[in-house]
Every structure is written in structure tokens, then in C-alpha cells.
Simulated scan of single mutants.
Amino acid sequence: MIKDKCTLYSSGLKGAEETFGEAAEKHGVNEVIYSFEGHKLSRDKNVKILGAEELVRGDISMELASRMLNRTYYETEKIRKVLQTIFHMVNSGHQVFVVGTIQEDGSVKGGTGWAVELAKMFNRPLHVFDQPNKQWFTWKNSSWQEDTPKIEYNTFVGSGTRYLNDAGREAIDQLFARSFGE
């Protein structure tokens, strides 16, 4: 991989996304942060503010999102914009990396789960670092399989929990080191 030809897509929020961005910067990887007007970011380099027209392109039914993630999402403007922003991230990046918690039903906890479900729908290479188990998993043959992934495409997504722990932080650092060298 040629690092200066690679681009990380995220939404620059505190926790996993902020750490993905810091790792990209450290390794000389380009970064694009998708956001919307009024969204509070922890990382604000190379921000692309999505306008109303762009956000609508990522529009989904809250009922569909609730059904796919096995939880209830209520119709609020902010949560809709967050899900629309996640659509743009996954639509832009070919490979998807997420730090979070894989639940018993195979979904990933929280809003991060939407990035995972979109990656499955878009047939993107998908990898989740499960913080409680301190292990990377790759979605293959409709199930989670233990893995030690590398960044293998020029465009990729870094998303995940706001509640990043030391194991999650180390997993992101090691992912970049494996992919681009120290």
C-alpha cells in the first residue's frame, strides 16, 4: 500500500474515529471527515460538510434501520443526519474497519452498527475489533470469523465507539503498523 495514495473516511467523533484519524495522520494517510452543520467534532481536519441535498442521498427509513439493527431508532433530525453521514462514509470507502461490540445476534452495538450493516449491504470488506473480546473479526460467508486484517484498499472507513478503551486504541495502532509499517 502506498500510504499517500490512501484515504481514510470517518466522521471525526471522539473515541474510535478520532483515533483512526490520528493514526492516519501519523502514517501519512489522507483523511476526509464527513459531517453536517452543527455537528460537534473531536477532529476537524479535512472536514467535508454535507449539505441538505447530499444528506438526502444517504436517507433511509428509520423503521428499516431499526429492523436491521434489532433496536429502535426514533425519528429525530440529528440521528437521521448521523445515519446519513455514515452512508457517505461507507459509500466512499471500499474497506470498512469498526471498533465496537459484536452482539449475540451478530449486529454491532450502537450507531456504529449502521456502518457495519451498510458495509454488508454494499458488499464491502468488513472488519470489526470487538473490544470486550479484544479480537478482530472479519465478515465472511455471513458470519464473524477471527482475523488479523490489514488495510488493503486505497479508500477505507474508520468508525466505531465513542467509548474507546486501551485495547481498541492499540488495535487501531497495530492495524496501521501492519498495513503501512512503523
Rank of each mutant, 00 (worst) to 15 (best):
E18Q: 15
T19C: 14
F20N: 14
F20H: 12
G21Y: 08
G21F: 08
A23G: 08
K26D: 13
H27D: 08
H27M: 05
G28D: 01
N30D: 08
E31I: 00
I33V: 07
E37H: 08
L41R: 01
R43T: 03
N46D: 02
V47G: 00
A52P: 00
E53K: 08
E54H: 09
E54M: 09
L55M: 11
L55A: 10
V56H: 07
R57G: 07
R57E: 12
R57L: 14
D59A: 15
D59H: 04
I60T: 08
I60H: 10
S61Q: 05
S61H: 06
M62F: 10
M62I: 12
L64A: 13
R67Y: 11
M68D: 14
M68K: 15
L69T: 10
R71E: 10
R71P: 06
T72M: 05
Y74P: 00
K78G: 12
K78F: 08
V82I: 15
L83P: 09
Q84Y: 02
T85K: 06
I86G: 11
I86T: 11
F87D: 14
F87G: 15
M89Y: 07
V90S: 14
V90L: 13
V90W: 13
N91M: 12
F97I: 15
F97M: 15
V99K: 05
V99H: 14
G100D: 10
T101A: 10
I102Q: 02
I102W: 01
Q103H: 04
E104Q: 07
E104H: 02
D105K: 00
D105A: 11
S107V: 00
K109S: 06
K109V: 03
G110W: 01
G110H: 01
G111L: 12
G111N: 14
